[in-house]
Structure formats: structure tokens, C-alpha cells
């Protein structure tokens, strides 16, 4: 029953009925929300506009709020030459590889381990589950140098494998899949067994299709996670071949005196566009997935 219906029949004091609060509170709500929206768009707008001006304009401190005429050459300069010797095109490629591999890898590794834990009985099952679970308490930041040493002993420094594999285990994704698998009715498993389907067949034909929504939601969260990695690539990817765009952009600002701010701004736009696009385009799954994953 909606608010309006409930209160219409009763003679209420004007203040108490939500629908009769009049235009003023709504107006205030709109104003505050618009201010909030503006607060998030303004920095992006400044960077977007700045990326279409030449270096001198920005260096003089004239923060342009309208588009200029140097968009094409700035973005071309960024993509082909970049700032500190690495073309941003290359960085974009590296970030894409890293984000995709982390998202897909984490989902794949987690879904099969959750399947093993939920649909089988075997020795040390609980121990296996708890060892995965406990990694929640060991974020890469607290074991950074020993982990770096392992990666360097394995000869994986400055490789995609070194960037990706050490952070590809996922307690969060495993927990989410486990939670979901526990809700699959027993009848499904019995029916499959009756039809003579083994665990692999059941996984491919029943579990995988049922998990599509969860996989989509996790993909958004993990793509953003992978794209936005900072401390780990900062240590492990020191060569130009594997530099990611977030790291590359910050390095461009290194020596402030001769920073090409317009190129930094163009790079900044390119660095934030892919993950924002993924979140906006997959918003429906993302919101559902986020609020369910983390609780």
C-alpha cells in the first residue's frame, strides 16, 4: 500500500502526511542531490575540458571550463608518445589485460573451488574452505615484500603472470558462489544423477547457467578491482612493457616543473573511462552483486 493511499482517508495534520509536505522539502532534496552530482562531475569535467587545451593554457593556471581545439592532438600525443616514454596506448593495453585476466581468472578459480566444497565430501574439506576464507585477512598490502620476494624468486617480475597470478585467489568470490550453490535445490542434483549425469555434466549444464547473474555482478566488481590496482603493480611492474595506466599517469606528474598537464589530463580521462563504462553499462547486475557479495 502506498503512502498516499494510507493517509488519504484520515484527517491528518498537514505536517504528518508525507505526501502533503508541499513543494519545499522536495525542492531542498533536489538541490542537495544536484549539488552532490555536481561535486562528482566537476573534477571530471575539468579534466575532460583541460584535455582539449594546449599545455601553455593549463600551465598559466587558466582552468578552462569550455572545450578547446587541441583534443585530437593531445589524445594522439598521449596514446602514441605518452609521458615518461611509455605510450598510453601500451598502458591501456596492459591495464585491459590485467583487469580482464583478474576478473575472469578470479571468477573461474572461485567457482570451481566453491563447487568442490559444496557438492562433494572429501577429507580436509573444511580445512580447504577455511584456508581460502582466511585470506580475507591477508590483503596484499600487509605481506607486500615477502610476496614480492616469492614473485622475484619465481622470475615473474615484469611479467603479466607476476602482475596477475599472486592476486587471483579470491575469498570473496568463493564465498559468494558457495552461498549461492547452497540454495540450489537437492532435486536438481537427484534428477541429474537419475539421468546418469556426472558432476562435470551437472556443473556445465545446470550450475554454470544458473550462476550467470552472479558471474556478471562479480565481473564488474573484479574488473574495477583489477584495473584500479596500485601498490602491487608499482612493485612488480617496473618496466615499460607491463606498466599499467594508473601507475603510468601518476609517474607522468613526477617532475612537476615540466609536466605536460594537458597530456596528464588526457591520460586521466583514458584511465577512468573503461572501468566507469563497465559500471554504468552493467549497473543492474553490479548493484545487486555488490550488496549481496559483501554481506
Amino acid at each position: 500500500m502506498s503512502t498516499t493511499e494510507t493517509t488519504r482517508g484520515l484527517a491528518l495534520p498537514a505536517e504528518a502526511a508525507p505526501h502533503r509536505q508541499g513543494p519545499r522539502p522536495d525542492w531542498v532534496a533536489h538541490a542537495v542531490l544536484l549539488l552532490g552530482v555536481l561535486l562528482f562531475f566537476l573534477p571530471i569535467w575539468i579534466v575532460l575540458m583541460g584535455s582539449t587545451h594546449d599545455a601553455a593554457t593549463i600551465g598559466r593556471g587558466e582552468v578552462p571550463l569550455l572545450p578547446g581545439g587541441h583534443a585530437l592532438e593531445n589524445y594522439r600525443a598521449a596514446l602514441e608518445q605518452g609521458g615518461a616514454g611509455v605510450p598510453v596506448g601500451r598502458m591501456l593495453f596492459n591495464s585491459t589485460v590485467m583487469a580482464l585476466a583478474i576478473a575472469v581468472g578470479k571468477i573461474a578459480i572461485s567457482i570451481i573451488s566453491a563447487y568442490a566444497v559444496v557438492f562433494f565430501r572429501f577429507p580436509f574439506r573444511q580445512l580447504a574452505f577455511w584456508s581460502i576464507f582466511i585470506t580475507l585477512m591477508l590483503p596484499v598490502e600487509v605481506r607486500i615484500f615477502p610476496t614480492f620476494k616469492v614473485v622475484s624468486d619465481l622470475g615473474l617480475v615484469n611479467t603479466y603472470a607476476g602482475l596477475i597470478i599472486p592476486i587471483i585467489a579470491s575469498a570473496t568470490a568463493t564465498l559468494l558462489f558457495r552461498q549461492f550453490f547452497l540454495t540450489i535445490p537437492d532435486e536438481f542434483v537427484e534428477a541429474a544423477k537419475m539421468d546418469g549425469a556426472g558432476p562435470v555434466r551437472f556443473f556445465l549444464d545446470v550450475v554454470l547457467p544458473l550462476s550467470r547473474t552472479n558471474m556478471a555482478a562479480l565481473f564488474v566488481i573484479l574488473f574495477v578491482y583489477g584495473w584500479n590496482q596500485y601498490l602491487w603493480p608499482l612493485l612488480v611492474a617496473t618496466s615499460a612493457d607491463v606498466e599499467t595506466i594508473v601507475i603510468g599517469m601518476v609517474k607522468m606528474i613526477g617532475s612537476e616543473a615540466n609536466t605536460d598537464w594537458n597530456i596528464v589530463m588526457a591520460t586521466c580521462v583514458l584511465a577512468l573511462l573503461p572501468p566507469v563504462a563497465v559500471v554504468v553499462l552493467m549497473q543492474r547486475w553490479f548493484v545487486k552483486g555488490l550488496t549481496e557479495t559483501e554481506k
Binding site: 571530471i44 574495477v224 596500485y230 599517469m249 601518476v250 586521466c268 577512468l272 572501468p275 563497465v278 559500471v279
Partner: peptide, 18 residues
Amino acid sequence: LIWPYAIAPAVAAVLWIF
């Protein structure tokens, strides 16, 4: 209001520089 979730902390910092 949802999309800033996708922005990397380091990118947020660079936006604030400007």
C-alpha cells in the same frame, strides 16, 4: 551517483590535483 565507484584512488587524487 553510482559511477564514481569505478574510479581508482590514484585517479581520484589526480582529479583533485586539478
